[in-house]
Design a protein around this nucleic acid. Sequence first.
DNA 1: AGATTGAACGACCGATCGGTCGCTTACTTC
DNA 2: GAAGTAAGCGACCGATCGGTCGTTCAATCT
Lengths: 206, 206
Amino acid sequence: MTSTVDGRRERGDRTRRHAARTAARLATVQGLDSITVGALAEATGASKSGLLTVFGNREEILLAAVAEARSLYVEHVIRPAWVEPSGAPRLRALLDRWVGYLHDEVFPGGCFVATTSAEFGHREGRVADAVRDLKREWIGVLERELSAAGVPDPAEAAFRIDAYLVAANTRRELFGDDAALDTGRRLALAVVPAGVAGAGETSTEP
Amino acid sequence: MTSTVDGRRERGDRTRRHAARTAARLATVQGLDSITVGALAEATGASKSGLLTVFGNREEILLAAVAEARSLYVEHVIRPAWVEPSGAPRLRALLDRWVGYLHDEVFPGGCFVATTSAEFGHREGRVADAVRDLKREWIGVLERELSAAGVPDPAEAAFRIDAYLVAANTRRELFGDDAALDTGRRLALAVVPAGVAGAGETSTEP
DNA sequence: AGATTGAACGACCGATCGGTCGCTTACTTC
DNA sequence: GAAGTAAGCGACCGATCGGTCGTTCAATCT
C-alpha cells in the first residue's frame, strides 16, 4: 500500500479531502444545498473544472462533504468518548465532547448534523439519504449507550438528549447565546443515570 | 377607508398575499433562501416581472413570506389556544394546537419556524432578523405562560418544551415518523404543571 | 369621456449556475 | 528516456439567476 498507485492518487486524494472538508464547513454556514461548485473552487483555491474532474458532479461533492463531516464528528466527539466504559460514563463523555466540538468551532456554523437534518428534512435523493443515515447513526449511539446505562426507555431518553442538544445548537447560532450549550448539556446530563452503571469495556468502535 | 385607494389596491394585495403564502409553504420544503423568483412565479401562476413589481425585489418576497408564516402560525396555533385561561390550560392548548398545526399540513415541510431557524442560524440581514424575531416571539409566549402557570424556572422550561417540539418536527420530517409528534407533545406536557394553576383570563392577544 | 395610476406582463440584461471539452502538467511504469 | 495515466486548468456551453424597461390592462377620480 505504498508507492505506485497510491503515489499517483495521493495528489487527488489530498485536494479531494480538502475540498470535502471545506464544503462541509461551508454547509453549516450557508446550507449544504447552497454550495456551488464555483464558490467551493474559490474557497479551496482550485478551479471549477478541477473539482469536477475529481468529483464527477456536484452531487458527489455534497456526498463527500457529508462523509467528511461524519469523519470529523467521529474524530472530535465519538472517538474521544470511546475511551470511557460503555453506559453512563461514556454518555457523560459524549456530552462533554459534543459541547467541546461546538465550542472549538469544528464547523463555523455549529453542528453539521443538526443543520443538515433540518435542511434535508423530507427531501429525496442520495444526499438526503446520507444525512438521514448520519442522524440515525447518532441516535443509535445514544440509544445503545443509554441502554447500557440501564435506562428503562432508551429511545425516549435518546429523543430527549438529542432534542436538548439540537435546541442548544440552534439557540447558540441564532442568538449567539453560548450559555445555551451548557444548559443543553446540563439538561441532557439529567437524563443520564447518576450512578456508575457502566457495564461495558473500552471496546469496539461504533 | 373604503372605496378608492383600497379598491385599486385590492388586486395587488390579493396576489401579494397569495405569493407570500406560496413562498412560505415552499420555504419549508426547499428552504426559504432557495426560493427563486422564477419558481415562485410558476407556482403562483404569475410572472417574474409581475411579482417583482409588487414586491420590489427578492428580499421583500422572503420578508413577506416570513410575515405570512407568522400570521398562519398565529391563526392555527396561538389564537385557538388563547381562548383558554393563561397558564397551564393555555399551555396545554398550545401544545395540542401545535401538533394539530403540523398534522394539518399547514406547511408541507413541517414547522416553518423550526426549519428557517436552523437555516438562518447565524446569518445576517433583514430576513435572518425576521426569522430571529419569530423564534424569539414564540419562546416569549412559552415563557410568559409558563410563568403564569407558576413554573419556577420559566426560561428553562421553555427551552425544554421548544426542544421537544423541534425535535419531534425534525424526526417526523426526516424519518416520516408521525408518532414523534405525540412523543414530543407528551414530553412537553410533562413540563407543564398538572394542577389547574391558571391565574389569568381569556385576555389580550400576544 | 378623458386623465391618472397601480398591477401585470414580455422582452431583455449581465452574471452565475452545473457541466463538457481539449489541453497541459506531474508522476509512474515500462 | 518513452509511454501511459490521473490531476488539474481555461475556455466555453445552454440554462437560469435577480432585476430593469417599456407597454398594456383595469380600475378610479375629475
